[in-house]
Design a protein around this nucleic acid. Sequence first.
DNA 1: CCTATATTAGCCAATTATTGACAAGTCAAA
DNA 2: TTTGACTTGTCAATAATTGGCTAATATAGG
Lengths: 97, 97
Amino acid sequence: MDSQFGNRVRVLREKQKLYLRQVAPLLEMDTAQLSKIEKGQRHLKKEQIPLLAEILKADKDELITLWLADQVFDVIKDESMADEALKSVSRKIKKKK
Amino acid sequence: MDSQFGNRVRVLREKQKLYLRQVAPLLEMDTAQLSKIEKGQRHLKKEQIPLLAEILKADKDELITLWLADQVFDVIKDESMADEALKSVSRKIKKKK
DNA sequence: CCTATATTAGCCAATTATTGACAAGTCAAA
DNA sequence: TTTGACTTGTCAATAATTGGCTAATATAGG
């Protein structure tokens, strides 16, 4: 229960001296939800990342990367074949390019 | 709509000269479902992989790896930050070991 | 101690996604 | 043109996720 994305968002938000109460409505959610997102208990919708990046004056691609990493991690954590699987996917996407 | 796992299962099943009709009931599903799984249109439940490996006299870890790779691929396909995200996850799981 | 503000936890209904089951379809071989 | 293997489509049932609310906790200042 802890996410790279959420941790980063919290840091960025605090750097901007913004409260949950200020940011949440901009994302059309309540503070409880945003709190959970920062704590990794809920996922932000992918489509909302660009808006959040803008609000936090952060790099969109960085946030997308962390968001994806969390999703991937959810799949392979606790799996003994995790590393093999990641390698397999890396190979596959490299071929596509 | 095409999966490494499904493709491999089909190859293994044919190598064993088994029909969908023979394998499906062992997994408690109908042939239509298994067909879709082999074509990557549905996912097999993770818990069923060991049984399937046994049925097909295949290596369980190989099937798990392919199954995980498909799940991961679903997350990062079409994402420009895919490669970065995979690297980030690799780093993270390496630290845990 | 009291009050105010920020954050978090818990709950449950509503929404969304996935699955199971079946019927009808294609295709190839005989 | 019948049979067997596989595929496709549909849809209700089930499961997972989310939204929204309320109450709890934590911290700081009077």
